[in-house]
């Protein structure tokens, strides 16, 4: 489980990495090796982003407070 978590990038990270990759690909001083490895990285990231977006489900939790003032979370509804 822990392993999976370290590998999981946030959507924001992946998305902004994609923007960076595109920027680098566009620049003239990108070697062929770099181009290919960036392209491969980009493909993996696009797949990840697509998966994240297509499988996302909005989660709603409710914060409640005990009489002692302790905060807790429960599922909404």
């Amino acid at each position: 489980m822990a392993k999976k978590e370290t590998r999981q990038k946030s959507f924001e990270e992946s998305y902004s990495r994609l923007e960076k990759i595109l920027e680098k690909l566009e620049s003239d001083d990108c070697s062929l090796e770099d181009t290919i490895s960036l392209y491969e990285e980009g493909l993996t990231l696009t797949k990840y982003c697509y998966d994240k977006l297509n499988n996302a489900e909005l989660r709603i939790k409710e914060i409640n407070k005990s009489l002692k003032g302790e905060l807790g979370i429960k599922d909404y509804k």
Binding site: L22, L25, Y39, L43
Partner: peptide, 27 residues
């Protein structure tokens, strides 16, 4: 907006592919 995001990821795949293609073609 998820629609915009998907669209821009689509664009990314398209552009990156064409960049790589034109790069190798140029070389």
């Amino acid at each position: 907006n998820i629609k915009d995001l998907i669209e821009s990821i689509d664009k990314f795949s398209y552009f990156s592919r064409s960049f790589v293609q034109s790069k190798t073609e140029n070389l």
